[in-house]
Design a binder for these strands. Sequence first.
RNA 1: CGGGGCGUGGCUCAGCCCGGUAGAGCACCUGGUUCGGGACCAGGGGGUCGGAGGUUCAAAUCCUCUCGCCCCGACCA
Length: 453
Amino acid sequence: MDQRKQFVEDLSDQTDDFSRWYNEVVRKAQLADYAPVRGCMVIRPYGYGLWEHMQRLLDERIVEGFAPQVAWVTQGGNDALEERLAIRPTSEAIIGRMYSRWIESYRDLPVLINQWCNVMRWEKVTRLFLRTAEFLWQEGHTAHATAEEGKAEVLRMLEVYRDFAETDLAIPVHAGRKSAAEKFAGAEMTYSIEALMRDGKALQAGTSHDLGQHFAKVFDITFQDEQGKRQFVHQTSWGASTRLIGAVIMTHGDDQGLRLPPRIAPVQAVVVPIWRKDEERAAVTEFIAKVVEALRGRVRLYVDDRDQYTPGWKYNEHELRGVPVRIEVGPKDVAKAAVMSVRRDGRAKESIPLAALGERLPALLEEIQRALFESARAFREENTATARTVAEMEAHFATRRGFVAVPWDGSAAFEAEAKERTGATLRCVPLDQTPWAGLAGAGQDVALFARAY
RNA sequence: CGGGGCGUGGCUCAGCCCGGUAGAGCACCUGGUUCGGGACCAGGGGGUCGGAGGUUCAAAUCCUCUCGCCCCGACCA
């Protein structure tokens, strides 16, 4: 903060206190605020806009072949609750009972359902977006005739999450399987995508479970196969939640605030008018109308023509809120029939002629999208080490964080000892082992450990 | 669930130790001058000090109990 005047909008530095920085960003960027209900938050329009873009992009990847989304809502819109919040049993229990009624024959399979809804959980310790008592998520539940079909579905969805995280959220992730200790209790096998936050802690950003026949046996979900024999179905379930918003914040944010990937940014570019005299204002306003026209349907644009703030004030505010590109339009630009664009990541400036804007700005947004991903990936690589023994892991975690790749024989004993001595947990066994070729011996896989949220 | 911290205008906090009836900066409202990196001047509005008891002539301040939030550790998306 050096000699600068203190402003309400000023943020703590990430390196001073990451948790504090996170909380300040969430609230000052107006993503969410604490609700009067313990452990709950209110997602504000800007944060919800992020979620809506995530929904749209993820749905595009899921929907084909899926039943229309259903939603169980325990709270409607902005209305105050008239009744107590009902905490429902786990999704698997509800789905199990419904499936047992809906499935009779192999002709009914597979059943593919995906829904976006809110859920409540009993949580002692909460954190905005990362863990709250109530949260929004997407959950898919499928039922299949064979184990092979189920396993294929589980891996297909894991890949959907990986691609979504990397392509749309610009978050590099490791897709892999969980250990017996870390998997969902009701699952045969759990898979997840694991991301690395800027404070060096890992975050599970999506989950896909192979439920096998566990729930089918509990809820009696059976079908008659082609031979007329009664069989239990094979199920999967998978989900991703508003926790992803937390992942975006902690993967890309810097000391100035949020840096949003253009694909999910509610506002992709903000136009800031600059003028002194009334005639300048008229010319600038007129020119901005042309800018808006040039970008209509191509870029999510916001023209910040609020009178009560100076341009400099607006620059700071939109940087805090993570808007990928700022477009300055002043008398000098109007004279050149151009605008001055400034990137949120790195603040590189570029004068763009009005005539080129419609082509250039979308391209610029894609460049920023890629740059954010590459920067996050570089950070992750810098914060990934290798070890061969628990002692080596202990030495590493004594002074550093990040991922540690270590050969794992699959034993619970090794995992437990590592956790005990380092505080890090086994995040996953990556499906793609090629980055660590040669590290693991025969019959072993490389596992990734990290301190985690 | 253990350890620590904090609840005072919208925000950040001072006042509390040593009771005397609430203050600053920012934000907000009005008017004017401003506007290429957080503008300035003048005037103005707003707080039963988280809640409930108690002590006292008198409580933001002392005592008891509660509720909530944050941070750090053990369990979970």
